[in-house]
Design a binder for these strands. Structure first.
Lengths: 329, 329
DNA sequence: TTTCGTTAAGTAAGCGCTTACGTAATAATA
DNA sequence: TATTATTACGTAAGCGCTTACTTAACGAAA
């Protein structure tokens, strides 16, 4: 049914070696043979079997991406960047939704390694030893995105979460806010949790503002949890004038809650988010937020992964995307 | 370095055949041998080479997904459903962003076929002959999602776009609207363009409302185009009281434009969307929209793809998710 | 003419598995 | 005890390619 290299060889009256040579643009054949072989390939609709090729070449032109979640705009903007350069360099990408679940992650790492991918991208989650040790043993390129490590020899690309968070809160302070709440992700999260809280604290401290634990509520980076956290904050009756949410989605959730309580935005409450995904344009008022160049991170990450001299780390710059959700107090 | 089945065999004092048998849960070995082999596998950190396996078994436990776009929530909710059942059945998924581009699509089909994937999911785009013919020749399972065909023997899962659109517009009419605009996708789009326009027309006609071409503006399903289309509509000064947008994202864009013009929502303009992604909860007022069970579609699609008796097509039911963006007139 | 150097092309050995087939040992049956 | 069925393995032939090595042919240099 499906033709193989021998079929081509036979029909073209050459050896499989020669067919292989023309397919792979090697040397060792005349222009005449080349044309003949190519014609037969076309006639037969021959497609080289990448599996067989992979077996001998020990390379698959495939990479795997371990993502903690498939539900946030952050994830897909990243994926978009990754896929973009992958496709341009003729790589395929296997997506792995780990759901932030250890077992699933390990499971996926095993699968990727069995499938002999040429590289693995580890996204946006703390690299536990449990993962790091295995990944290191795999002996294939690994790069980290929106996270980092100083224990394992993997390059990373990310922005400095602490500083970015510091900027966000400083921005609010600059606009005259003093009673500033925070809707954080999981405080145990060493990537998007703890550092962003640290930035928040630092900004307050540097401005001589007292830190009150009650001003922080916790969510899971997603919309619904943002609403819930905002509700908590309001019920604590803290007289907040502004809130920093650790993701655009939570910021949107917070706004939804405030709208439901007919609290005028941004007049009675300023909100600043984090990520600058499209979500930030969808809210009303449009969300002022910390911008990280997400798609670019994906592109850089692929570059890091595919490059051989991949020792460098990349820390991208963040900025504040000013829209309409923050007002002066 | 990396150990292979021979290493395991030698060290366990058995043949490779026996190792293979225990790995694959076949019969033909004693409990003792099994344990011994398993122990050695563990000691050596042996991982079966899926490429070599694939070469002999002619199966890769991998499927490919051709997506027209990686930027919409629709895509990702779908992908989530797909990944979910794929992972549960031990399949990997390769994502292919075709960008609605013929060359890229063909290119990806070629790659997937060379990589000998066990199936292909074709998402949300009209199946041109250019694609259909090649896919058919590939002789591997193909299923369509959020699109259909009656020319090629591929099963599909989708909702009836025409009917769904009809429902949306009828809902507006039921709320008393008569001057109803539409923000459509590309009218050439045989899946999400034309049928939704047809549904809009039909609903108006059945209600005895005159159809005015000027009441339709066109976008590309994305946010920015939604704003632009809304602007056009407003500048035509048609006295519309409601607009049906063919995607939540465009609806959000439309709302953003209206907000920027300080037009009170929903009082001066009702908006209804299409999809019911998370986007619909982020807007203010929260978007009333046509619900399609997107994630479920992804799950069903994988089921269709992996099942052998895959002759059936699935048309899922839509509904209206009522939120706050539509008011009585 | 003889001798090299080049180049086109073929031969065949793997890549790391699975599996059909063969064989020896043991258990069951007569 | 002899015969047969059953089970536990081992042997070796591929799966569809790439590539090191070899061979043949041809032109250039001596």
């Amino acid at each position: 049914m499906i033709s193989k290299i021998d079929d081509v060889a036979r029909r073209a009256g050459v050896s499989t070696a020669t067919v292989s040579r023309v397919i792979n643009n090697k040397t060792g054949f005349t222009e005449d043979t080349r044309r003949k072989v190519l014609r037969v390939i076309d006639e037969l609709g021959y497609k080289p079997n990448a599996i067989a090729r992979g077996l001998v070449s020990q390379t698959t032109n495939t990479i795997g991406v371990l993502m903690p979640c498939l539900s946030s705009r952050f994830s897909f903007e990243l994926l978009k960047g990754i896929e973009k350069v992958a496709h341009s360099k003729n790589y395929s990408v296997i997506i792995c939704n780990t759901d932030r679940n250890g077992e699933r992650t390990l499971n996926y790492i095993q699968t990727l390694s069995e499938k002999r991918v040429d590289g693995i991208l580890f996204i946006s989650e703390w690299l536990k030893d449990e993962y790091g040790e295995i990944l290191e043993k795999l002996n294939i390129p690994v790069a980290l995105v929106a996270t980092y490590t100083d224990k394992y020899p993997f390059p990373y690309v990310r922005v400095d979460d602490r500083q970015a968070s510091y900027s966000a809160v400083s921005y609010l302070i600059g606009r005259g806010h003093r009673k500033i709440g925070m809707i954080s992700g999981n405080p145990e999260d060493r990537i998007a949790g703890k550092p962003r809280i640290a930035g928040y604290r630092q900004a307050l401290e540097d401005a001589g503002i007292e830190l009150l634990e009650a001003r922080i509520a916790y969510g899971d980076f997603h919309f619904t949890s943002g609403s819930a956290a905002m509700e908590e904050l309001m019920q604590r009756d803290l007289g907040l004038t502004a809130v920093f949410a650790a993701s655009d989605e939570m910021a949107a959730g917070a706004m939804a809650y405030l709208h439901s309580k007919r609290i005028p935005l941004p007049d009675s409450m300023s909100i600043i988010g984090y990520d600058d995904t499209l979500d930030a344009e969808m809210t009303f008022p449009a969300l002022t937020t910390v911008r990280q160049p997400i798609e670019k991170m994906g592109e850089w990450a692929m570059d890091l992964l595919l490059k051989s001299d991949r020792r460098e780390n990349i820390v991208l710059r963040h900025s504040i995307s000013v829209r309409d959700s923050v007002t002066d107090v």
